[in-house]
């Protein structure tokens, strides 16, 4: 077991898969010679060369489509889109081609690409660099959507995503690349479907994913120490398909649910998880499920306003206390 940073875990997964399979390539803006904006592909250019570690022009839809075309021939492209805000430009190829080609060809072709892209609100990056778009991706049939919350998860999930025959979108976070965590030294894979019980509890389930898992864990700690509430934390690292069984199992145990998302509430993860709870285990509930979300605004530049626009651990605590009538 070693403690490494999130970006190092991504880099390790790339490196191992590229060493194993000469058809694995990575491509994106500044990922080769510069080593990547987040260092996630650092050193790979020197090791694997320009045919496999490719600096692309700033043409998101173009190079994503190029990766999809290459994947038809068995190439395994890992495409880094520098920010999810830019992935809007590649949605045509991701949604219209990658997500649909298997279906509309009657199973003749698949597009086994991985698109990695960080979303989220970071340090005063302004409205066009702070989007959270996982909810858009998870609404599209034919795509897998993954949002790792730790170095261990991103390593194991990226390894599986590269080998999976479906297109996989991995939603990372600008603020998490330097996060440290334990990653086993031996190679391992995480399944692309499922959820993880991060903290067992009996009174309420806090559902998080990506950065919001950490807010949930902080909130659970505060609730335990200060309010005698034993919260369970479930990490929904797979947003599509969602782990319906795992969601129902936890809610059936705690009978209360709070879903924590950094994004705006409308048509989001919180709404979707609530629907799953309604469909799978409504009569297990002791209280209406609650979602903790961002305000419905573009993210402002001002630091104080930026922080006020998105939720944090205290907001989660407040929601839980309100649910318990405290």
């Amino acid at each position: 077991m070693s403690e490494i940073m999130f970006w190092e875990a991504i880099r390790r997964a790339h490196d191992e898969e590229m060493a194993r399979d000469p058809l694995v390539i990575c491509m994106g803006e500044d990922i080769a010679i510069a080593g990547g904006t987040y260092k996630a592909t650092n050193g790979l250019y020197d090791k694997y060369g320009p045919e496999r570690v490719i600096d692309t022009p700033i043409s998101e839809n173009g190079y994503t489509g190029l990766g999809i075309g290459a994947s038809y021939l068995g190439i395994r492209p890992v495409i880094e889109i520098m920010s999810v805000n830019f992935s809007w430009l590649a949605m045509d190829q991701i949604f219209n081609t990658a997500a649909k080609v298997r279906y509309m060809s009657g199973g003749q072709l698949t597009a086994p690409i991985v698109v990695r892209s960080p979303g989220g609100t970071a340090h005063q990056l302004g409205a066009q660099h702070s989007a959270r778009m996982e909810k858009v991706f998870m609404g599209i049939a034919g795509l897998r959507v993954i949002t790792p919350s730790s170095p261990r998860q991103v390593y194991g999930l990226l390894k599986s995503a590269i080998r999976c025959n479906d297109p996989v979108f991995i939603n990372e976070h600008e603020l998490m690349y330097n996060m440290k965590g334990e990653v086993p030294d031996d190679e391992f894979f995480m399944p692309l479907e499922g959820s993880e019980l991060t903290r067992a509890g009996k009174d309420v389930t806090l559902f998080g994913y990506n950065i919001s898992v950490h807010w949930c864990l902080q909130a659970a700690d505060i609730l335990a120490r200060q309010h005698d509430i034993d919260a369970e934390v479930v990490d929904l690292y797979a947003l599509s398909p969602l782990d319906r069984v795992g969601i129902a199992a936890s809610v059936s145990k705690t009978h209360r649910a709070v879903i924590v998302e950094e994004a705006e509430p409308a048509v989001g993860v919180g709404a979707e998880v609530m629907a799953v709870i309604n469909e799978e285990c409504f009569f297990e509930l002791d209280a209406p499920p609650v979602r903790v979300s961002a305000l419905n605004v573009p993210i402002p530049y001002n630091h104080t306003l930026e922080k006020a626009a998105i939720p944090n651990a205290q907001d989660v605590v407040k929601s839980v206390l309100k649910m318990f009538g405290k």
């Binding site: 058809l23 489509g65 190029l66 990766g67 999809i68 075309g69 021939l73 190439i75 190829q93």
Partner: peptide
């Protein structure tokens, strides 16, 4: 216009193989 980059990608695959 969707096939433009897909065809370039197939060409990339041919070149790699």
């Amino acid at each position: 216009g969707g096939p433009f980059p897909l065809a370039a990608g197939i060409a990339k695959g041919i070149k790699m193989k």
